[in-house]
Design a protein around this nucleic acid. Structure first.
Lengths: 155, 155
DNA sequence: TATTGTTATACTCTATAACTATA
DNA sequence: TATAGTTATAGAGTATAACAATA
């Protein structure tokens, strides 16, 4: 505690790290993502498996490459993620009649259930973490994040 | 390109991932941090070594545990980071007379130079990445990130 | 006893090259 | 020739336990 106050003292307005998005992004995302990971662990999910499950629940029939593209996950890494969800019987991997190379993914009943439950859990844990935010601030913040994401993808 | 438009079509307003900070945080920070990493690689720096160098340049005499606390880096991981900066002769590791366990860190002349140069490089690369942001939006965004960081640390 | 810095280690996330089977 | 999914692998970043030296 006495150490903490020292720290606060030496990274105030004067330092030029303060203006940088990337610098604060690293620390803020670490906090948010580890909070999220903790919440999701109750459902045996990770950030990546949760994202994949959700996008499949909301867009049944998606193929692997589409999921990878939508979530900014490299295809090789996605394989393990979908394996995991399939092992837990939250999704099914189905051959596509029109393209024998491809698989289409659908949520199971349990998958839909877990998706809904974990989403609620995330909502309440995020609300705790962002309780200093007004709804408008939160909306602006998410909007800013989306701007960054879309910007980067259209380079 | 034609695949991209499909993707955009299936993750629009309806999906509930949209409201989540964590979900977008993962993708946005990946983009920003990899952009940053690319810029810093010109100076043989990484995000962590850059942060450590900068905080040392701005607060000469800091000790290892203070740096770790300030940057949210675990002490064991910081060892390697400071080793690297010392090898490149950007900082010096000095014994503290009053506490023989501790080390105090100071930037070298070269360290200060690289710090200034890399900071300028980051500024211009961030400006490109955030060119859709007004100065006010950027300030609000950084403010939101800081709120998250301070919130999490005082739990 | 507690703390500073260290070593060793492990786990996760991410990225790339190369393969197979289909198209 | 290109694409979908896969395998193997390597590199970061991060986290924890245990230790030596010192407080």
């Amino acid at each position: 505690m006495q150490n903490k106050s020292k720290i606060v003292n030496f990274h105030p307005s004067k330092d030029h790290l303060n203006g940088f998005v990337g610098y604060h992004m690293r620390r803020a995302s670490k906090l948010i993502l580890s909070d999220l990971a903790e919440t999701l662990s109750e459902f045996s999910l990770r950030m990546t498996t949760y994202s994949a499950l959700t996008i499949i629940c909301e867009n049944p029939g998606l193929r692997q490459s589409q999921i990878a593209l939508a979530l900014s996950i490299e295809r090789p890494n996605l394989v393990v993620i979908l394996d995991e969800l399939e092992q837990f019987e939250l999704i099914t991997r189905n051959k596509v009649p029109t393209d024998r190379r491809a698989f289409a993914f659908y949520p199971t009943e349990e998958g839909n259930k877990i998706c809904t439950q974990s989403t609620k859990a995330i909502q309440s844990s995020e609300e705790k973490l962002l309780k200093n935010f007004t709804p408008e601030m939160k909306a602006d913040f998410v909007h800013a994040l989306k701007l960054i994401i879309n910007k980067g993808e259209h380079l």
